[in-house]
Amino acid sequence: MSDTLNLENAIEILLVEDNPDDEELTLYALAQNNLANQIHVVRDGAAALEFIFATGSYAHRNIYNRPKLVILDLKLPKVDGLEVLRQIKSDPRTQLTPVVVLTSSRTEQDIVESYQFGVNSYVTKPIDFTQFAESVQQLGLYWLLINQPPVR
């Protein structure tokens, strides 16, 4: 992605995805609705937490400058997705950030735990690519354009 410093104020979607193929697919789907321009991608759970909590290599960020949406994979290196979700949702400074889990896991336990931790939406990847692209576009449109977030 381009320089995060310049785009600091503009980040609307934080995509947490370790697999480059999955990243490309998600970005492509979002681009169909011109939603791919204000995305920042991180590759592991630890980097996601640093971004959200404005620590480490993201210490320059303002923690209250929340992305409009976090798209989170569950299977992540370093810190797993459920833990990232738990930390976002248990801190008053970040808990208002909408988090959507986008994963291939249909495990009952993952779904239940995600909701217990306060996930805003849980989307499983469909078998068909067109359906996948539509799902991603819809969730992008919904959270970025239709949904009314609380005042920042």
């Binding site: 193929d21 490309e24 690519f129 996948f132 692209a133």
Partner: peptide, 17 residues
Amino acid sequence: RKQAEMALLYSETLNRT
């Protein structure tokens, strides 16, 4: 072409999963 590539990539990631 891009759409076809992406569909292929998607099915590839699905197969891998």
